[in-house]
Simulated scan of single mutants.
Amino acid sequence: MINRIMLLLVMLSGNLLYAQETDCKVLAPRISGIYRGECKNSLAHGKGIAQGIDMYEGEFKKGLPEGMGVYNWADGSYYEGYWRQGLRDGSGIMTFSPDSIVRGFWKADKYAGKEKIKQYEVTQSRYVARSSFSRTGNTPLQVKVKLTLGGVPNNTIQDFSMTYSSGEEFRLGTAYGIQNVTYPLTVRMQYRTWNVMRTVMTDVTFEFRINEPGSWDVNIQN
């Protein structure tokens, strides 16, 4: 009886491994040959090992390397670090040979330097009470700016001007926008508005730079 149970367990284990190798897909072409690991909705998801022309061992999400992992190329070079949607993204170490090693940060599979690049930064702010930035998704590549006064849309704006390093300007209700953007994007806004007590008109200047591609909402409160 015990022998039959052991045989059944071995068979089940073999069937599970076979299912992982054939039914659980890896969407990165160079490592899509054989996969062993965790699976969700027929895609590699969780920890696993994928091997094709190259080999990757680490975390997956929806069929692609995401999280921490080690990628070995066929030429012998390898990268150990963080991934996002199948691309090197975050801190990591790239080893080309024992005497050629690069440490630092990657963004969308490109080396960004030894220090992490900020998603955005305010480079000039005059007569602005506070500001906030929110990345709402990967697409469309656009920036929407809302101007508020005392928590409501600011309808006292005068002499508004906006310059930007790329894209096309559009309006969406009371929001100012820039679409078809190439990042990094630099935006400079100038306008006149009442202060929150509506006692003095102020000349506002607000300049910012967004480095990470995506769809962004920017809120400026006077």
Rank of each mutant, 00 (worst) to 15 (best):
W73E: 15
F105N: 05
V196S: 10
W194D: 11
E121Q: 15
M189A: 12
Y111E: 07
G37C: 06
G214M: 02
G52Q: 07
M11S: 13
P184Q: 03
Y71Q: 06
V143Y: 02
D54H: 09
M68K: 13
N72Y: 15
T202R: 12
T193N: 08
F160C: 01
T199K: 14
P153A: 01
N138Q: 09
N41C: 03
K25Q: 11
D203E: 13
K61A: 14
V204E: 05
Q51I: 08
T182N: 12
S91D: 13
P184K: 07
N219D: 09
D23S: 12
L17E: 12
W216P: 07
E38V: 14
L43K: 11
Y35W: 06
E38P: 01
S166A: 09
T199R: 11
I5E: 05
E80P: 00
R36M: 03
V204S: 08
W194G: 06
A129D: 14
N154M: 01
P184M: 10
A175T: 09
S100F: 08
Q142G: 10
R188S: 10
S132G: 13
L17A: 13
N3R: 06
E80V: 15
M94T: 10
F105E: 08
M94W: 04
N155F: 05
S42E: 11
D203A: 12
S165V: 12
A112T: 00
G104N: 03
G46S: 09
S125A: 10
V10M: 04
L9G: 06
W216T: 07
A175H: 07
I49N: 06
F170S: 08
V26F: 01
C24Y: 02
R30T: 05
M11R: 00
V204C: 05
Y78F: 15
K40F: 08
R103M: 12
E66P: 01
S165H: 04
K62G: 04
S134K: 15
T182V: 10
V128D: 02
I101E: 06
M94C: 06
M201E: 11
Q124G: 04
T174M: 00
G81R: 01
A108I: 06
L185Q: 08
I157E: 00
F208R: 03
M6K: 11
L27S: 03
S132A: 12
D89L: 08
I178H: 02
T174C: 00
S161K: 08
R30Q: 15
D159P: 03
G58Y: 03
G113P: 05
P65L: 06
Q119K: 08
L87H: 08
N219M: 12
A175W: 10
D89S: 13
R126G: 01
Y127V: 00
Y78S: 12
R103K: 13
K47Q: 13
K114T: 08
L12K: 03
W194C: 03
D159S: 14
G67P: 06
A112R: 01
Y56L: 07
T123H: 05
N3L: 09
Y18E: 05
Q51Y: 05
Q124R: 15
R103G: 07
T22F: 10
Q51T: 09
Q142V: 02
G104I: 01
R30W: 10
D54P: 02
A19R: 11
L7W: 06
M201H: 09
Y82G: 05
D203F: 01
T139M: 12
N72R: 15
F206E: 05
Q124H: 14
G63L: 01
G177T: 07
K47W: 03
A112D: 06
N3D: 12
M6G: 00
G167V: 11
M55K: 15
M197Y: 13
